[in-house]
Every structure is written in structure tokens, then in C-alpha cells.
Simulated scan of single mutants.
Amino acid sequence: MEEQPSSCLKLLGSWASSYTHRVQLALKLKGIEFEYIEEDLANKSPALLLNNPIYKKVPVLLHRDRPVPESLVILHYIDEAWPSTLPIMPSDPYERALARFWSHFADDKLGPAVGAVFASSGEAQKAAVEQVHDNFRLIESELRDGAFKGRRFFGGDRIGLLDIVLGCGSYWLAVFEEVAEVTLLDPEPFPLFHSWLKDFEGQEEVKEIIPAFDRLLEYAKGVRHMMLSTKANSSTAAGSPVGNCASESSSNTSVTVTAPTDQLGEN
């Protein structure tokens, strides 16, 4: 017997985390009530460390105090745990496989490419922008001639798993464009993907989840300034007499400093 949504469902997340937004949107679309608990990722709570001891990241879904970490795993879980609510996964096995494949593409290829644009400058940034455009060309091709041709959303007539995965994060593109002074999603070469994103962002459930642009912009400016400053300091240290001694420490610092971009994601 399917369990009814109740107060025994909790979500540990971060306001800026696109991965947290994925879970929030899926729960909202399915009409499942839950308690949201905001995490300070600079000072992670004992509850987060206890319930995700391997990755120590948000989001984590607690269902009757049983933890389910990682956004894609959570999305599959809630769709299976509450099958009578609006499904986010296709019923056809091949369509489900497509949704899973392109969701992994978003996390393994597109996301890191966008992150590289945000974290770099100069020639490195130009190369990163081109990598993003290469990924967009693949998606645009699928929308124009491939598996998703003629669809309003990747899930068909309504938002599905792949829409959630691609959409929760794509709204950062406009923020990154302003902060990094680049053009990522140009409607001229990518008209179908651009149109899809505008339609996605216009949905009431989505608008209730996405933080205000100005808040995202202020946050991103601070993160990018810190990242580039740390990278510059690391380069200076590498050129000094103590550069070799400091290299391991600098590398560890770089990992720490890039962690705020995980708040745009986490897992």
C-alpha cells in the first residue's frame, strides 16, 4: 500500500543548490508535503554528516528517518515511493533510459563545463565557453531532429525527470553570463533549447522554487571573486621559493574554494 505524504518526510538542502531545487520541484509537482531544513554548507550540521557520511553533501531526503542522498537517486525514489501522484519518469522503458542517459549527460558533461566557465578567465574561459556550446549543440540536435523532436518538454506535454535535471541549474546561465561577462545560451544558434528553458522557467511550480535573480547574482559575484583571488594567490605562491612546499596546500585550498560552486550543485 502506498504511503501517504506526511510530516515524516524531510529535505536537507541549501537555498542556492540547483540539486536541492531538483528535489523541491519534484516534490512540489507530485504534491508531496515535506519539511525543508536549510543547511549551512560552511558549517555542516551533525544531521547532514550523519545521514550522508560518504559525500557530506546536500540534498538528503529523510523518509521516516531513513536517508536517501544524491538528487538523481532521490528523484527516482520519490517517483517509486509515490506512484499514484504525477509521475516524473516515463512509463516506456526506452523513454526512461533516454531520460536517465541525458540526466547523466547533464551532470557529467554539461554541468562541469558550465562550472569551468565560472571558475576561469582569459583563454581558459574561452575554451570552457566553447565546451558549453558543444554540449548545447548536442541537446539542440536532439530537440531538432532526435528523440525529443516536437516536444514541448523533454518529458512530453509536461515536465519530467530530464526537464527537472536540466532546468534546475540552467537558470544559473543568465547569472554566470553577467558575472563572467560571457555569452552561454544564445537564442540564435540554440533556439529550441532557449525556448524550452523560457517555457520551463515560466511554470508556476518552477517560479516558486528558483531564488530571485538578484540574490543569485550577488551570491555568484562573491563566489567568483573568491575563487579567482585564490587562484591568483596560488599562482603567486607557485612562483615563489616556497612554491613547491606550498603546492599540496594550495591544491587543497583550491578544492575548498571551489566547494561554493557545489552549492550551485552539491549532488
Rank of each mutant, 00 (worst) to 15 (best):
I54Q: 08
A174N: 11
A16G: 00
K56R: 14
F153D: 08
W196V: 05
N52V: 08
L98C: 15
T20I: 00
S120W: 04
A127D: 14
F154T: 07
E95C: 14
R100I: 03
A113P: 06
Q125T: 06
K126A: 13
H104C: 03
R64L: 07
E266I: 01
E33Y: 04
K231N: 04
S103L: 04
T236F: 11
K28N: 10
L110H: 12
K109W: 00
L25C: 14
P112G: 03
E218I: 02
M1W: 01
A212K: 15
F190Y: 15
N244K: 10
D65L: 06
G122P: 09
D79I: 02
P93I: 00
E39T: 14
L49P: 06
A127T: 09
A113L: 07
E177T: 05
V117N: 12
F190G: 12
D163I: 07
N43Q: 12
E38G: 13
V117G: 12
G239Q: 12
P5A: 02
P93M: 04
V223A: 12
G202N: 09
E80S: 14
V223Q: 10
P187C: 04
E142D: 13
V114W: 00
D40M: 08
D108L: 05
H63E: 07
I164C: 11
S229F: 03
N244W: 12
E181H: 12
G239K: 06
A42F: 15
A180C: 07
E3Q: 10
Y55C: 05
I209W: 04
P112A: 11
G150Q: 11
D186Q: 10
N244T: 09
N52K: 07
L197F: 04
A232L: 14
L49N: 05
D262C: 08
K109I: 13
H194L: 05
E35I: 13
I209A: 10
E123P: 01
P53C: 01
P187Y: 00
A232K: 15
L50W: 06
V206H: 07
E80V: 01
L48G: 11
P93C: 06
P53W: 04
G31I: 04
P53K: 00
L9S: 07
T183E: 11
D214A: 15
L162H: 10
S7E: 15
E208I: 01
V58M: 05
A246K: 06
K109D: 11
V179G: 07
Y36F: 15
E142W: 05
G202E: 08
A97T: 06
A97E: 05
S234E: 12
S251K: 08
E80P: 01
V242N: 05
S121P: 00
F136N: 02
D145S: 14
E38T: 13
E208D: 14
K231T: 13
T230N: 15
K44P: 10
E266W: 03
H133S: 06
E188S: 07
D107A: 08
P59L: 01
I78L: 14
L185E: 11
A232R: 14
L61N: 03
H21K: 02
D186L: 01
A180Y: 05
S195E: 10
C245W: 09
L162M: 14
N252P: 00
K221E: 11
C245G: 01
A127R: 08
E201H: 02
L49E: 02
L75Q: 12
W196G: 10
